[in-house]
Amino acid sequence: MAVGHGDSSSSDKKSTDALNDLQTFNAENLQSNMKVIYYSRTFLSIIGGVIAGILGFKGLIGFVFYFLVMAITSAALTAKAKFSIHSYFDTWNRVLLDGFFGGLMSFVLFWTFAYDIVHIF
């Protein structure tokens, strides 16, 4: 993965017990974390599209491949956050869903491009 969390991107979560329901996130850091997610998803959807095209996936298999890539991305991001999602993001949806459909368009484009160049001519 081309991007990672810098030291500054760890959100402030100071309070521990009895205060867990309080919102103690640093908005800027949260924003930067989400940007990291967006970049890694876009990057991986482009790379995944090229791979799917070169391997010649057709129809449903290609979309399944996209879901697989995104699932792997989510897992990798979770691992990168050292499995404590809540100290970096406010909800799980940030890791699992954000940028999911934004990447689909790039994926389809690069999938088509690579597939055409390699297979149909």
Partner: peptide, 17 residues
Amino acid sequence: FLNLFGLRGLFSLILGE
């Protein structure tokens, strides 16, 4: 047209946000 819409992601990668 496909390029016009699909390349947005690539641009955000190579040109910054």
